[in-house]
């Protein structure tokens, strides 16, 4: 696995730990452009259901997706702790994902990551490429590239 090899090579990576529902997810910090508070999201008609719409990020129009909808969980409830994590992919530019809460930044080495290609949510799709162990806690590591992969429409 290319990712796996990369992890071994780079030894230790930093992850932002976020909460969605009861689970903790880790997002590779190298993809993260910014974390912003919840703001008004403009709905885009006829867009994919998991895209909540677009926001204004310092003068740029950035699409925002709901990981909950994408993963088949119940709808988002926005609270004071809700955040939009702005991610950047080399090719396609910026997009945001909504999370319930941002907890901390952890550093994980290859030894603390267990490779996982298995579906966790049971829907047959996996957005996770590994499980990180941070002390007692388990963190599902999100595979950013599969999140934006548009399988729903194929």
């Amino acid at each position: 696995m290319a990712e796996q090899l990369e992890v071994i090579r780079n030894e230790r990576k930093q992850y932002i730990v976020v909460k969605i529902g009861n689970e903790q997810y880790g997002i590779d910090i190298s993809y993260v452009d910014n974390i912003v508070r919840m703001q008004k999201i403009t709905r885009v008609p006829k867009a994919q259901s998991y895209f909540k719409g677009v926001i204004n990020l310092r003068g740029e129009v950035v699409p925002v997706m709901s990981l909950r909808t994408k993963m088949g969980l119940e709808a988002d409830v926005f609270t004071n702790a809700s955040r939009i994590i702005i991610l950047k992919l080399e090719q396609q530019g910026l997009f945001g994902v909504i999370v319930d809460e941002v907890k901390e930044v952890v550093t994980l080495g290859a030894a603390e990551i267990e490779k996982s290609g298995q579906s966790v949510n049971g829907s047959g799709e996996s957005f996770i490429n590994g499980i990180g162990k941070n002390g007692e806690e388990l963190i599902s590591l999100l595979d950013i590239n599969t999140i934006v992969d548009d399988r729903e429409n194929v």
Binding site: T42, V54, V61, Q92
Partner: peptide, 19 residues
Amino acid sequence: KSLGKYINNNNKLISGATI
């Protein structure tokens, strides 16, 4: 402003966004 590449806009009802 462009809506970007992520959002599906197949029927092209929306030609873009503005701030």
